[in-house]
Write a protein that binds this DNA or RNA. Structure first.
Lengths: 239, 239
DNA sequence: CGATTGATTGATGATCTTCAATTCATGTGG
DNA sequence: CCACATGAATTGAAGATCATCAATCAATCG
């Protein structure tokens, strides 16, 4: 957790990929151009189709990136964890946000006006290449997601979604790997293109098999190997 | 069609977005660094997971970008039409191709060694921003595809896929808008995450309603408005 | 003109969604 | 601090959508 909103320590961001190669003075400059902001659980950080006036860095907490269809269905495109950039529409030549970002728990966020993007890219060594790597990773993930939706059954898709969360965003407890933010059946269904009922049935079945334990807004993976085999991935898969 | 493989005219690429802002001398340089190559229908231009040694510009023809799952299912990620870059793994910090590219019909292709990518980005004004716009467009398309797969029924998905092809890659005939490359029921099913049987049934039903006519490897949209309404898009939708 | 690839269509059934009825957990206000 | 409202989860029953299998037909090509 970050102790204060007033004094931004350079160490806060110096280890984060896009800033890793920068001098302390550069980092100081970058931090001086931003004011940290807190968002509480459920608050929107930016909204789909709004003009992309700022870009963001999540320092602490978890964020859901969400799109809504004309019919009102919600789809969770991805989760953002601490240290990731978001709202980087400018990186890909957009002027509006392609999706909404919602704080899942309490979040601490830095942001800069989009007008600074070009400056960052030009001035700070490695910033451009690192952020384009990020964009590339997201494109790959999106394509993997398409492959899953197009070829796999619901059980495999849910298993994979849960597997990714366990590997990327869990803490070890005595029960097992606990997803470290509140996560409902409905949330999982919105990540996988199914219904909350089907997710509930799957989790119940898996609980009987000793693969997970779960509760209200909580999921714990108790047997990663079995989950991987349900997900139909290599046993050495790590995300 | 391009008349000869020997003399590459500067006009060939001067109107294509990433090169649009360049001087004639720059374009000459770029063309001198490549040899055009032909691929015949069905040939692979590059393969998934291969080291990304070159990047490509499609000058003529149509290319399918394909991924294959461990189980052997194929998914068509996108189609490339003349004037588009492909195999630009380097743009997003990858060292291997994320998918295979297969010539649908006879294709004419330019290519450059990946080692030149950094030079292009640095040296040629507008090249970077234009190609990142391309990457951004592909990311948006991928996210739209995810939204469709997650929320829409097969009929809507097939209607949308066909609609996009009609709007982006068709010629007008007296029958209607004919998709201008060979396209099988199986191909359509691989674009939409369904089976060739279901696509065949849908096309048959649509033919009875006067929305399409179709034949072997051929689909013609005869009533765009009705197709749009099946696809559940705005009547003014244009891609 | 046979062989191959693509398309059609009926029958059957699995998978998953939908609806409805409860139960359970959590936090809030009286 | 308990009662109650609210949001979350469960589970049965019913049925829609789509995949699968199989048989047949049609087009194209060497």
């Amino acid at each position: 957790m970050v102790s204060s909103l007033r004094s931004l320590d350079e160490n806060l961001i110096s280890h984060i990929p896009p800033f890793r190669k920068l001098e302390r003075s550069d980092i100081r400059e970058i931090l001086d151009a931003t004011t940290p902001k807190r968002f509480s659980a459920g608050q929107a950080i930016f909204e789909e189709d709004e003009p992309a006036e700022r870009f963001y860095l999540l320092l602490d907490g978890h964020v859901r990136v969400v799109r809504t269809t004309a019919a009102g269905d919600q789809v969770i495109a991805r989760h953002i964890v601490s240290g990731e950039l978001m709202g980087i529409a400018s990186a890909i030549g957009r002027t509006t946000y392609p999706a909404s970002a919602v704080a899942i728990d309490d979040c601490l966020v830095l942001s800069w006006p989009t007008s600074l993007w070009a400056t960052f890219v030009e001035k700070y060594d490695g910033f451009a290449s690192e952020t384009y790597k990020t964009v590339g990773k997201r494109l790959s993930e999106a394509n993997n997601h398409i492959l899953e939706l197009a070829t796999q059954q619901v059980e495999q898709r849910v298993a994979r979604a849960l597997l990714r969360l366990a590997l990327q965003s869990s803490r070890n407890t005595d029960e097992g790997m606990e997803i470290d933010f509140p996560l409902t059946r409905q949330n999982i269904s919105e990540m996988t293109g199914t219904t909350l009922y089907t997710v509930s049935r799957l989790l119940s079945a898996w609980e009987k098999k000793g693969i997970v334990t779960s509760g209200r807004k909580k999921v714990v993976v108790t047997h990663l190997g079995k989950l991987k085999s349900l997900a139909d991935v290599d046993p050495t898969y790590e995300g």
